[in-house]
Design a protein around this nucleic acid. Structure first.
Lengths: 230, 230
DNA sequence: TGAATAGTGTCTTTCAGACAATATGCC
DNA sequence: GGCATATTGTCTGAAAGACACTATTCA
Protein backbone atom coordinates (compact mmCIF):
# COMPACT_ATOMS: atom_id res chain seq x y z
CA UNK A 1 0.00 0.00 0.00
CA UNK A 2 1.47 3.33 -0.93
CA UNK A 3 0.79 6.85 0.18
CA UNK A 4 -0.92 7.53 -3.09
CA UNK A 5 -3.21 4.58 -3.16
CA UNK A 6 -5.29 3.83 -0.17
CA UNK A 7 -8.63 5.47 -0.34
CA UNK A 8 -8.63 5.62 3.46
CA UNK A 9 -5.08 6.86 3.70
CA UNK A 10 -5.90 9.99 5.61
CA UNK A 11 -7.13 7.86 8.47
CA UNK A 12 -4.21 5.44 8.20
CA UNK A 13 -1.21 7.70 8.02
CA UNK A 14 -0.54 7.44 11.73
CA UNK A 15 -1.15 3.77 12.12
CA UNK A 16 2.29 2.63 10.94
CA UNK A 17 5.12 2.33 13.37
CA UNK A 18 7.64 5.06 12.63
CA UNK A 19 11.42 5.03 12.64
CA UNK A 20 13.53 7.60 14.46
CA UNK A 21 15.30 10.03 12.16
CA UNK A 22 18.61 11.67 12.94
CA UNK A 23 21.16 13.80 11.16
CA UNK A 24 24.83 12.91 11.44
CA UNK A 25 27.61 15.30 10.57
CA UNK A 26 30.89 14.69 8.86
CA UNK A 27 32.76 17.86 9.79
CA UNK A 28 35.95 18.32 7.80
CA UNK A 29 38.79 20.71 8.33
CA UNK A 30 42.44 21.01 7.41
CA UNK A 31 44.68 21.05 10.48
CA UNK A 32 48.46 20.60 10.55
CA UNK A 33 48.45 19.75 6.84
CA UNK A 34 46.03 16.88 7.38
CA UNK A 35 42.41 16.37 6.46
CA UNK A 36 40.60 15.85 9.75
CA UNK A 37 37.10 15.11 10.92
CA UNK A 38 35.48 15.88 14.23
CA UNK A 39 34.64 12.86 16.37
CA UNK A 40 32.88 12.74 19.71
CA UNK A 41 33.25 10.09 22.36
CA UNK A 42 30.04 8.31 23.27
CA UNK A 43 29.14 8.30 26.93
CA UNK A 44 26.39 5.70 26.91
CA UNK A 45 25.25 2.41 25.50
CA UNK A 46 25.46 1.35 22.74
CA UNK A 47 29.10 1.73 21.72
CA UNK A 48 29.88 3.33 25.06
CA UNK A 49 33.34 4.98 24.94
CA UNK A 50 33.54 4.54 21.18
CA UNK A 51 34.19 7.48 18.89
CA UNK A 52 31.35 8.56 16.61
CA UNK A 53 30.52 11.39 14.27
CA UNK A 54 28.26 13.94 15.94
CA UNK A 55 24.55 13.93 15.31
CA UNK A 56 21.12 14.12 16.80
CA UNK A 57 17.40 13.82 16.30
CA UNK A 58 15.51 15.79 13.71
CA UNK A 59 12.79 17.80 15.43
CA UNK A 60 9.29 17.76 14.09
CA UNK A 61 9.29 21.41 13.08
CA UNK A 62 12.72 21.77 11.52
CA UNK A 63 14.00 20.83 8.08
CA UNK A 64 16.80 18.30 7.70
CA UNK A 65 19.20 21.05 6.75
CA UNK A 66 18.24 23.11 9.77
CA UNK A 67 18.68 20.11 12.00
CA UNK A 68 22.17 19.69 10.57
CA UNK A 69 22.92 23.39 11.09
CA UNK A 70 21.69 23.22 14.66
CA UNK A 71 23.80 20.19 15.47
CA UNK A 72 26.81 21.76 13.82
CA UNK A 73 26.37 24.89 15.87
CA UNK A 74 25.95 22.90 19.05
CA UNK A 75 29.17 21.01 18.41
CA UNK A 76 31.39 23.70 17.02
CA UNK A 77 29.76 27.07 17.56
CA UNK A 78 30.09 27.87 13.86
CA UNK A 79 27.38 29.03 11.47
CA UNK A 80 27.44 29.87 7.78
CA UNK A 81 29.75 27.13 6.63
CA UNK A 82 29.54 24.86 3.61
CA UNK A 83 26.94 22.18 4.28
CA UNK A 84 25.83 19.45 1.90
CA UNK A 85 23.58 16.46 2.28
CA UNK A 86 25.66 13.32 1.76
CA UNK A 87 23.47 10.23 1.85
CA UNK A 88 20.79 8.57 3.95
CA UNK A 89 21.69 5.42 5.80
CA UNK A 90 18.83 3.22 6.86
CA UNK A 91 19.72 -0.41 7.40
CA UNK A 92 17.20 -1.78 9.91
CA UNK A 93 19.86 -2.97 12.33
CA UNK A 94 22.30 -0.08 12.17
CA UNK A 95 21.35 1.00 15.68
CA UNK A 96 20.75 -1.74 18.27
CA UNK A 97 18.27 0.39 20.25
CA UNK A 98 15.58 0.87 17.67
CA UNK A 99 15.07 1.67 14.02
CA UNK A 100 17.08 4.80 13.29
CA UNK A 101 17.40 6.29 9.84
CA UNK A 102 20.13 8.89 9.58
CA UNK A 103 20.61 11.60 7.01
CA UNK A 104 24.32 12.31 6.82
CA UNK A 105 25.69 15.76 6.00
CA UNK A 106 29.13 17.06 5.16
CA UNK A 107 30.31 20.34 6.67
CA UNK A 108 33.54 22.14 5.83
CA UNK A 109 35.21 24.40 8.35
CA UNK A 110 38.08 26.72 7.54
CA UNK A 111 41.13 27.14 9.71
CA UNK A 112 40.00 30.51 11.06
CA UNK A 113 36.53 29.39 12.13
CA UNK A 114 37.75 26.17 13.59
CA UNK A 115 37.19 26.20 17.34
CA UNK A 116 35.43 23.68 19.53
CA UNK A 117 32.77 24.84 21.89
CA UNK A 118 34.17 25.15 25.37
CA UNK A 119 30.86 24.30 26.93
CA UNK A 120 29.98 21.37 24.77
CA UNK A 121 27.55 18.89 26.21
CA UNK A 122 29.72 16.17 24.74
CA UNK A 123 32.12 14.47 27.05
CA UNK A 124 34.95 14.67 24.57
CA UNK A 125 35.45 15.90 21.03
CA UNK A 126 38.58 15.73 18.93
CA UNK A 127 39.89 16.32 15.42
CA UNK A 128 41.14 13.05 13.90
CA UNK A 129 43.18 12.71 10.75
CA UNK A 130 41.20 10.71 8.21
CA UNK A 131 44.32 8.63 7.75
CA UNK A 132 44.35 7.51 11.38
CA UNK A 133 40.78 6.95 12.47
CA UNK A 134 39.81 4.86 15.48
CA UNK A 135 37.09 2.21 15.27
CA UNK A 136 33.79 4.05 14.98
CA UNK A 137 30.37 3.41 16.45
CA UNK A 138 27.38 2.24 14.40
CA UNK A 139 27.95 2.33 10.63
CA UNK A 140 29.93 5.53 10.94
CA UNK A 141 32.98 4.11 9.19
CA UNK A 142 30.83 3.57 6.12
CA UNK A 143 29.58 7.14 6.35
CA UNK A 144 33.11 8.51 6.61
CA UNK A 145 34.22 6.45 3.63
CA UNK A 146 31.30 7.66 1.59
CA UNK A 147 31.92 11.27 2.59
CA UNK A 148 35.60 11.11 1.72
CA UNK A 149 34.76 9.89 -1.74
CA UNK A 150 32.24 12.69 -2.20
CA UNK A 151 34.70 15.33 -1.01
CA UNK A 152 37.46 14.02 -3.25
CA UNK A 153 35.37 13.92 -6.38
CA UNK A 154 33.82 17.33 -5.78
CA UNK A 155 37.24 18.82 -5.22
CA UNK A 156 38.19 17.79 -8.73
CA UNK A 157 35.36 19.51 -10.53
CA UNK A 158 34.09 22.32 -8.31
CA UNK A 159 35.23 25.23 -6.18
CA UNK A 160 34.28 23.36 -2.99
CA UNK A 161 37.72 24.11 -1.52
CA UNK A 162 36.49 27.57 -0.57
CA UNK A 163 34.86 25.95 2.45
CA UNK A 164 38.19 24.84 3.85
CA UNK A 165 40.13 28.08 3.51
CA UNK A 166 39.81 31.51 5.11
CA UNK A 167 38.66 34.38 2.90
CA UNK A 168 42.18 35.22 1.74
CA UNK A 169 44.89 32.68 1.15
CA UNK A 170 48.04 31.95 -0.80
CA UNK A 171 47.98 29.69 -3.84
CA UNK A 172 50.38 27.38 -2.05
CA UNK A 173 47.79 26.96 0.72
CA UNK A 174 45.13 26.10 -1.83
CA UNK A 175 47.47 23.60 -3.44
CA UNK A 176 48.11 22.06 -0.02
CA UNK A 177 44.35 21.56 0.42
CA UNK A 178 44.22 19.68 -2.85
CA UNK A 179 47.26 17.59 -2.05
CA UNK A 180 46.04 16.66 1.41
CA UNK A 181 42.56 15.67 0.27
CA UNK A 182 43.60 13.88 -2.89
CA UNK A 183 46.57 12.39 -1.03
CA UNK A 184 49.06 12.94 -3.82
CA UNK A 185 51.61 15.60 -4.79
CA UNK A 186 50.68 18.08 -7.50
CA UNK A 187 53.05 19.95 -9.78
CA UNK A 188 53.09 23.60 -8.72
CA UNK A 189 53.27 25.09 -12.21
CA UNK A 190 50.49 22.93 -13.62
CA UNK A 191 48.32 23.54 -10.57
CA UNK A 192 48.59 27.33 -10.82
CA UNK A 193 48.03 27.30 -14.57
CA UNK A 194 44.88 25.21 -14.18
CA UNK A 195 43.38 26.83 -11.11
CA UNK A 196 43.86 30.38 -12.37
CA UNK A 197 42.42 29.51 -15.78
CA UNK A 198 39.18 28.36 -14.14
CA UNK A 199 38.45 31.95 -13.23
CA UNK A 200 36.99 31.51 -9.76
CA UNK A 201 39.96 33.07 -8.00
CA UNK A 202 40.59 36.80 -7.73
CA UNK A 203 43.88 38.31 -6.74
CA UNK A 204 43.47 40.67 -3.81
CA UNK A 205 46.52 42.71 -4.80
CA UNK A 206 47.83 42.16 -1.26
CA UNK A 207 50.91 40.24 -0.37
CA UNK A 208 51.43 38.28 2.77
CA UNK A 209 54.79 38.23 4.44
CA UNK A 210 55.18 35.20 6.62
CA UNK A 211 58.85 34.57 7.18
CA UNK A 212 62.27 34.86 5.69
CA UNK A 213 61.24 34.46 2.08
CA UNK A 214 59.49 36.14 -0.78
CA UNK A 215 55.94 37.21 0.17
CA UNK A 216 53.02 35.60 -1.61
CA UNK A 217 50.10 37.18 -3.40
CA UNK A 218 46.79 36.62 -1.62
CA UNK A 219 43.76 35.33 -3.51
CA UNK A 220 40.12 34.91 -2.70
CA UNK A 221 37.28 32.90 -4.22
CA UNK A 222 34.94 35.14 -6.17
CA UNK A 223 31.94 32.98 -5.27
CA UNK A 224 30.87 31.69 -1.87
CA UNK A 225 28.59 29.08 -3.35
CA UNK A 226 29.41 25.84 -5.06
CA UNK A 227 30.06 26.02 -8.81
CA UNK A 228 30.94 23.12 -11.07
CA UNK A 229 33.27 23.31 -13.99
CA UNK A 230 34.22 21.20 -17.03
CA UNK B 1 20.57 16.96 23.03
CA UNK B 2 22.15 14.46 20.70
CA UNK B 3 22.08 10.71 20.53
CA UNK B 4 25.57 10.58 21.86
CA UNK B 5 25.14 12.78 24.86
CA UNK B 6 22.35 12.10 27.20
CA UNK B 7 23.35 9.76 29.93
CA UNK B 8 19.74 8.64 30.11
CA UNK B 9 19.36 8.33 26.36
CA UNK B 10 18.34 4.71 26.37
CA UNK B 11 15.23 5.65 28.27
CA UNK B 12 14.61 8.72 26.14
CA UNK B 13 14.96 7.39 22.63
CA UNK B 14 11.26 6.78 22.27
CA UNK B 15 10.04 9.95 23.88
CA UNK B 16 10.49 12.14 20.81
CA UNK B 17 7.72 12.49 18.30
CA UNK B 18 8.78 10.75 15.11
CA UNK B 19 8.28 11.68 11.48
CA UNK B 20 6.87 9.31 8.87
CA UNK B 21 9.45 8.08 6.40
CA UNK B 22 8.67 7.16 2.81
CA UNK B 23 10.57 6.26 -0.31
CA UNK B 24 9.61 7.92 -3.59
CA UNK B 25 10.66 6.59 -6.97
CA UNK B 26 11.73 8.41 -10.06
CA UNK B 27 11.35 5.67 -12.65
CA UNK B 28 12.96 6.54 -15.96
CA UNK B 29 12.65 4.86 -19.31
CA UNK B 30 13.14 5.73 -22.95
CA UNK B 31 9.91 5.42 -24.92
CA UNK B 32 9.25 6.76 -28.44
CA UNK B 33 12.61 8.54 -28.43
CA UNK B 34 11.73 10.46 -25.31
CA UNK B 35 12.95 10.29 -21.74
CA UNK B 36 9.91 9.47 -19.66
CA UNK B 37 9.04 9.00 -16.01
CA UNK B 38 6.26 7.02 -14.46
CA UNK B 39 3.59 9.05 -12.70
CA UNK B 40 0.56 7.84 -10.79
CA UNK B 41 -2.66 9.70 -10.27
CA UNK B 42 -3.57 10.34 -6.65
CA UNK B 43 -6.98 9.15 -5.57
CA UNK B 44 -7.26 10.93 -2.23
CA UNK B 45 -6.53 14.11 -0.35
CA UNK B 46 -4.14 15.85 -0.43
CA UNK B 47 -3.52 16.65 -4.08
CA UNK B 48 -6.45 14.48 -5.08
CA UNK B 49 -6.38 13.81 -8.83
CA UNK B 50 -2.89 15.25 -9.13
CA UNK B 51 -0.07 13.28 -10.66
CA UNK B 52 2.74 12.18 -8.38
CA UNK B 53 5.79 9.97 -8.48
CA UNK B 54 5.09 6.59 -6.91
CA UNK B 55 6.19 5.86 -3.38
CA UNK B 56 5.23 4.46 -0.03
CA UNK B 57 6.14 3.94 3.59
CA UNK B 58 9.32 2.34 4.74
CA UNK B 59 8.51 -0.64 6.90
CA UNK B 60 10.24 -1.09 10.21
CA UNK B 61 12.07 -4.23 9.18
CA UNK B 62 13.24 -3.32 5.69
CA UNK B 63 16.15 -1.21 4.49
CA UNK B 64 15.54 1.93 2.46
CA UNK B 65 16.80 0.21 -0.65
CA UNK B 66 14.53 -2.77 -0.09
CA UNK B 67 11.58 -0.45 0.43
CA UNK B 68 12.42 1.16 -2.91
CA UNK B 69 12.71 -2.24 -4.58
CA UNK B 70 9.39 -3.34 -3.13
CA UNK B 71 7.60 -0.21 -4.30
CA UNK B 72 9.17 -0.51 -7.71
CA UNK B 73 8.02 -4.06 -8.01
CA UNK B 74 4.53 -3.15 -6.88
CA UNK B 75 4.27 -0.44 -9.49
CA UNK B 76 5.97 -2.03 -12.45
CA UNK B 77 6.47 -5.72 -11.76
CA UNK B 78 10.18 -5.40 -12.50
CA UNK B 79 13.10 -6.50 -10.38
CA UNK B 80 16.83 -6.30 -10.90
CA UNK B 81 17.01 -2.88 -12.45
CA UNK B 82 19.37 -0.03 -11.83
CA UNK B 83 18.43 1.67 -8.56
CA UNK B 84 20.22 4.57 -6.91
CA UNK B 85 19.43 6.71 -3.92
CA UNK B 86 18.92 10.27 -5.10
CA UNK B 87 18.36 12.62 -2.16
CA UNK B 88 16.30 12.96 0.99
CA UNK B 89 13.63 15.64 1.08
CA UNK B 90 12.45 16.70 4.49
CA UNK B 91 10.93 20.17 4.63
CA UNK B 92 8.52 20.15 7.59
CA UNK B 93 5.55 21.29 5.50
CA UNK B 94 6.09 19.23 2.37
CA UNK B 95 3.09 17.04 3.20
CA UNK B 96 0.03 18.76 4.67
CA UNK B 97 -1.04 15.66 6.59
CA UNK B 98 1.91 15.23 8.91
CA UNK B 99 5.67 15.34 8.95
CA UNK B 100 6.88 13.10 6.14
CA UNK B 101 10.52 12.70 5.22
CA UNK B 102 11.04 11.01 1.88
CA UNK B 103 14.10 9.28 0.55
CA UNK B 104 13.99 9.56 -3.24
CA UNK B 105 15.41 6.89 -5.51
CA UNK B 106 16.10 6.73 -9.23
CA UNK B 107 15.26 3.57 -11.15
CA UNK B 108 16.08 2.91 -14.79
CA UNK B 109 13.98 0.55 -16.85
CA UNK B 110 14.92 -0.67 -20.30
CA UNK B 111 12.55 -0.91 -23.20
CA UNK B 112 12.22 -4.69 -22.93
CA UNK B 113 11.37 -4.78 -19.23
CA UNK B 114 9.04 -1.84 -19.45
CA UNK B 115 5.50 -3.01 -18.68
CA UNK B 116 3.03 -1.67 -16.18
CA UNK B 117 1.36 -4.05 -13.79
CA UNK B 118 -2.10 -4.88 -14.98
CA UNK B 119 -3.36 -5.33 -11.47
CA UNK B 120 -1.84 -2.27 -9.95
CA UNK B 121 -3.54 -0.90 -6.90
CA UNK B 122 -3.05 2.54 -8.37
CA UNK B 123 -6.00 4.13 -10.09
CA UNK B 124 -3.92 5.26 -13.01
CA UNK B 125 -0.28 5.17 -14.03
CA UNK B 126 1.31 6.65 -17.12
CA UNK B 127 4.65 7.35 -18.74
CA UNK B 128 5.18 11.11 -19.15
CA UNK B 129 7.86 12.77 -21.22
CA UNK B 130 10.07 14.82 -18.93
CA UNK B 131 9.62 17.65 -21.40
CA UNK B 132 5.86 17.75 -20.92
CA UNK B 133 5.12 17.09 -17.27
CA UNK B 134 1.86 18.01 -15.59
CA UNK B 135 1.77 19.85 -12.27
CA UNK B 136 2.92 17.42 -9.62
CA UNK B 137 1.78 16.79 -6.06
CA UNK B 138 3.85 17.70 -3.00
CA UNK B 139 7.43 18.76 -3.81
CA UNK B 140 7.66 16.17 -6.55
CA UNK B 141 8.61 18.71 -9.22
CA UNK B 142 11.72 19.49 -7.18
CA UNK B 143 12.50 15.79 -6.92
CA UNK B 144 12.14 15.32 -10.67
CA UNK B 145 14.37 18.31 -11.38
CA UNK B 146 16.99 16.98 -9.00
CA UNK B 147 16.81 13.52 -10.53
CA UNK B 148 17.14 14.80 -14.07
CA UNK B 149 20.29 16.64 -13.14
CA UNK B 150 21.71 13.54 -11.52
CA UNK B 151 20.88 11.36 -14.51
CA UNK B 152 22.40 13.84 -16.95
CA UNK B 153 25.64 14.26 -15.10
CA UNK B 154 26.06 10.53 -14.50
CA UNK B 155 25.44 9.82 -18.16
CA UNK B 156 28.46 11.94 -19.02
CA UNK B 157 30.96 10.11 -16.88
CA UNK B 158 29.65 6.61 -16.27
CA UNK B 159 28.14 3.60 -18.01
CA UNK B 160 24.74 4.27 -16.40
CA UNK B 161 23.06 4.03 -19.81
CA UNK B 162 23.13 0.25 -19.48
CA UNK B 163 20.04 0.57 -17.32
CA UNK B 164 18.01 2.07 -20.13
CA UNK B 165 18.86 -0.40 -22.89
CA UNK B 166 18.16 -4.08 -23.40
CA UNK B 167 21.11 -6.47 -23.23
CA UNK B 168 21.96 -6.09 -26.90
CA UNK B 169 21.59 -2.89 -28.84
CA UNK B 170 22.86 -0.92 -31.81
CA UNK B 171 25.29 1.96 -31.33
CA UNK B 172 22.70 4.25 -32.89
CA UNK B 173 20.28 3.28 -30.12
CA UNK B 174 22.86 4.09 -27.49
CA UNK B 175 23.53 7.41 -29.16
CA UNK B 176 19.81 8.12 -29.15
CA UNK B 177 19.73 7.54 -25.38
CA UNK B 178 22.47 10.12 -24.94
CA UNK B 179 20.81 12.61 -27.25
CA UNK B 180 17.42 12.26 -25.61
CA UNK B 181 18.71 12.64 -22.07
CA UNK B 182 21.21 15.39 -22.76
CA UNK B 183 18.71 17.03 -25.11
CA UNK B 184 21.21 17.86 -27.81
CA UNK B 185 22.42 16.26 -31.03
CA UNK B 186 25.73 14.41 -30.99
CA UNK B 187 28.07 13.84 -33.92
CA UNK B 188 27.90 10.20 -34.90
CA UNK B 189 31.59 9.73 -35.67
CA UNK B 190 32.79 11.42 -32.50
CA UNK B 191 30.28 9.51 -30.41
CA UNK B 192 31.37 6.14 -31.73
CA UNK B 193 35.05 6.96 -31.42
CA UNK B 194 34.60 8.04 -27.80
CA UNK B 195 32.20 5.37 -26.59
CA UNK B 196 34.18 2.51 -28.10
CA UNK B 197 37.46 3.85 -26.70
CA UNK B 198 36.03 3.68 -23.17
CA UNK B 199 36.09 -0.08 -23.38
CA UNK B 200 32.85 -0.94 -21.63
CA UNK B 201 31.13 -2.10 -24.80
CA UNK B 202 31.65 -5.50 -26.39
CA UNK B 203 30.63 -6.33 -29.90
CA UNK B 204 28.41 -9.40 -30.00
CA UNK B 205 29.41 -10.29 -33.54
CA UNK B 206 25.72 -10.39 -34.40
CA UNK B 207 24.01 -8.07 -36.79
CA UNK B 208 20.46 -6.93 -36.53
CA UNK B 209 18.39 -6.48 -39.64
CA UNK B 210 15.55 -4.12 -39.03
CA UNK B 211 14.36 -2.73 -42.33
CA UNK B 212 15.39 -1.68 -45.79
CA UNK B 213 18.91 -0.66 -44.89
CA UNK B 214 22.29 -1.93 -43.91
CA UNK B 215 22.09 -4.09 -40.77
CA UNK B 216 23.81 -2.87 -37.62
CA UNK B 217 26.29 -4.59 -35.36
CA UNK B 218 24.91 -5.38 -31.93
CA UNK B 219 26.84 -4.44 -28.80
CA UNK B 220 26.45 -5.16 -25.12
CA UNK B 221 27.79 -3.57 -21.94
CA UNK B 222 30.50 -5.72 -20.43
CA UNK B 223 29.52 -4.67 -16.89
CA UNK B 224 26.10 -4.61 -15.31
CA UNK B 225 27.22 -2.35 -12.51
CA UNK B 226 27.98 1.31 -12.53
CA UNK B 227 31.53 2.29 -13.44
CA UNK B 228 32.93 5.81 -13.63
CA UNK B 229 35.50 6.98 -16.11
CA UNK B 230 37.75 10.03 -16.67
C1' DT C 1 18.01 2.48 -58.25
C1' DG C 2 16.16 4.89 -54.45
C1' DA C 3 15.47 4.97 -49.49
C1' DA C 4 17.22 4.27 -45.07
C1' DT C 5 20.57 3.48 -41.74
C1' DA C 6 25.58 1.79 -40.78
C1' DG C 7 30.19 2.69 -40.73
C1' DT C 8 34.54 5.24 -41.21
C1' DG C 9 39.27 9.19 -41.01
C1' DT C 10 41.54 13.68 -40.87
C1' DC C 11 42.55 17.97 -39.25
C1' DT C 12 42.64 21.46 -35.71
C1' DT C 13 42.48 23.02 -31.22
C1' DT C 14 42.58 22.44 -26.42
C1' DC C 15 44.14 20.57 -22.28
C1' DA C 16 46.95 17.70 -19.15
C1' DG C 17 51.31 16.52 -17.69
C1' DA C 18 56.41 16.47 -17.50
C1' DC C 19 59.94 19.39 -16.40
C1' DA C 20 63.85 23.74 -13.95
C1' DA C 21 65.31 28.22 -13.46
C1' DT C 22 64.81 32.92 -11.59
C1' DA C 23 62.74 36.33 -8.05
C1' DT C 24 62.06 38.26 -3.61
C1' DG C 25 62.33 38.99 1.10
C1' DC C 26 64.35 38.11 5.67
C1' DC C 27 68.15 36.96 8.54
C1' DG D 1 75.24 35.55 0.98
C1' DG D 2 72.20 31.86 2.54
C1' DC D 3 67.67 30.26 3.22
C1' DA D 4 62.90 29.73 2.21
C1' DT D 5 59.07 30.25 -0.53
C1' DA D 6 56.97 32.57 -4.89
C1' DT D 7 56.61 32.91 -9.56
C1' DT D 8 56.97 31.75 -14.41
C1' DG D 9 57.01 28.94 -19.79
C1' DT D 10 57.83 25.23 -23.11
C1' DC D 11 57.23 20.95 -25.08
C1' DT D 12 54.73 16.80 -25.94
C1' DG D 13 50.95 13.63 -26.16
C1' DA D 14 46.01 12.77 -25.71
C1' DA D 15 41.53 13.83 -26.34
C1' DA D 16 37.59 16.67 -28.08
C1' DG D 17 35.27 18.63 -31.74
C1' DA D 18 34.32 19.99 -36.59
C1' DC D 19 33.37 17.92 -40.68
C1' DA D 20 31.39 14.28 -45.51
C1' DC D 21 31.53 10.40 -47.94
C1' DT D 22 30.99 5.31 -48.82
C1' DA D 23 28.64 0.70 -47.62
C1' DT D 24 24.85 -2.38 -47.20
C1' DT D 25 20.32 -4.00 -47.31
C1' DC D 26 15.51 -4.13 -48.88
C1' DA D 27 11.68 -2.68 -51.60
Amino acid sequence: MTIQNSSSEKYNLEKYEKPSVTVDLLIFTILDSELRILLVKRAAWPYENSWAIPGGFVRMDESLENAAKRELHEETGVTDVYLEQLYTFGEPDRDPRTRVITVAYIALIDSESRTLRASSDVSEAQWFSVKKLPALAFDHSTIVEYGLNRLRSKLEYSNIAYGLLPTEFRLSELQRVYEVILDRPIDKRNFRKKILSLGFLDSTGEKEISGAHRPAMLYRFNKKEIVFFE
